[in-house]
Design a protein around this nucleic acid. Sequence first.
DNA 1: CGGGACGCCTGTGAGC
DNA 2: TGCTCACAGGCGTCCC
Length: 296
Amino acid sequence: MPELPEVEITRQSLVSQVLGARVQGIRLGKPLRWPIGVAPERLQGCTITAVQRRGKYLWVVLRASDEEGLARQGQHAQEPVDGGLLMHLGMSGSLAWMALHPGGSAPAPPGKHDHFDLVTHRGVLRLTDPRRFGAVVWSAALDVAPAAALLSRLGPEPFDEALTPTSFHAALKRHRAHVKGVLLSGQVMVGAGNIYACEALFAAGIDPRCASDRISRPRAARLLAALRDTLNRAIQAGGTTLRDFRNAYGESGSFQNDARVYGREGLPCVTCDTPVRRIVQGQRSTFFCAACQRRA
DNA sequence: CGGGACGCCTGTGAGC
DNA sequence: TGCTCACAGGCGTCCC
């Protein structure tokens, strides 16, 4: 899926459109990974006050406005409540914002892969997700169930200043598995999925088969810098679009054209011409240059 | 607890 | 053209 850059691009392209939008209702398609966990009526009248990101999750903050809340009293057994929707794009999800224009036509009806609509007075936020590994889950806050459980094992954000070469190195030391898998687990740092883990390991010159706890401090520092640089450049490029990814305006990303190893099996390494290799680690493809990327 | 395999679900492209 | 198989950006759960 969407890895951190795609989720961040989605957030950025969405935020100015949806802030202040009043929720009128939701429409559910086929089931996603988990049930939404809230009675749809409770969302009516809430206002979107923020769109945040934690790892690859989006957190759409909803506030029950006083006005709306008062107007509803006596109408529904359950009042709208403060909270938010924790959204994940899974492997194939994307969010689209369909603005309502005064006098304009109604938003397009949902297609077969459109499984969630958040309908507001200003437009519709629609989740399209063919594989349905994505999720939309209501939570009263990020630090209570169910959001807290989903976020509990996430490592630090890549651009968190508290994440330093020293702390990153120490975190790598706590895992004995191969470094590629440890990066994918998100426990040492969130955000890198299969593409960006491969790309950052290439940029850092580290063999993906290398044991996490055997990476030296200088190499850990290089890896952290490479991860940050790779994720940053991907965000600048609007993300990677292999097939499904689009931002909230329906635009593709272009980082797939900048990939130096991902998806390039058999093609010459951009640095040394050695054919790029593809191996399988933890049931995921790993692409690397056996000449440029070293175990130590 | 860490680590690895599994399964969720649908679509696509390659090979026959 | 049609079938089968491998593979796809993630991650929670289960079992060792």
